[in-house]
């Protein structure tokens, strides 16, 4: 049941607890209790809205940075990742297999801002060996949502 609730919330965080109850065949109170539990144990980390900022006046530049690090004795990569994710401009940090160690996604107002962040804050950090910064040119799909969805229902309005 928990997984079913999570799956519904993952695709639409605004679905009401009443509606979740109806479609899963349990009471609204049960849904609310489950969600409270999931929030308390941080299974649910938070609720985001997926925004296409291109449609607004706000300038947003996203960059994906490949970071190589020297893991510190005894604490591995976690301590370094922790220092990196403290910065509010960092939206995601992942530990990777393969040619580099951390993927750091950052958002800034301009390329310059991002570049300054990398050169002044990220690159000089202890244990960070190198940074390769890739700017996102265009977003097509994020978290399951397509940026320019095909809205129109192609079907006839009535079909027996």
């Amino acid at each position: 049941m928990q997984q079913k609730i999570l799956a519904l919330l993952e695709t639409n965080a605004r679905i009401s607890t009443e509606q979740i109850g109806i479609v899963l065949g349990i009471s609204q109170a049960e849904v609310e209790a489950e969600i409270k539990k999931l929030e308390a144990d941080h299974t649910i980390l938070g609720y985001n809205t997926i925004v296409n900022w291109e449609k607004t006046d706000r300038e947003v530049v996203t960059a994906l940075i490949e970071v190589k690090v020297t893991p510190q004795r005894g604490i591995g990569f976690d301590k370094i990742a922790e220092r990196v994710y403290q910065y509010p401009e960092v939206t995601s940090v992942y530990l990777m297999s393969g040619g580099f160690d951390l993927t750091v996604v950052i958002e800034g107002k301009s390329m310059k801002e991002v570049a300054l962040f990398v050169s002044q804050k990220l690159a000089p950090m202890d244990s960070i060996l190198s940074c390769a910064t890739h700017f996102v040119l265009k977003k097509y799909k994020q978290n399951g949502f397509v940026y320019t969805p095909d809205e129109k229902d192609q079907r006839a309005a009535i079909w027996l």
Partner: peptide
């Protein structure tokens, strides 16, 4: 429309 007999 809730009139269509084919999957969305």
């Amino acid at each position: 429309s809730l009139g269509v007999g084919e999957p969305d």
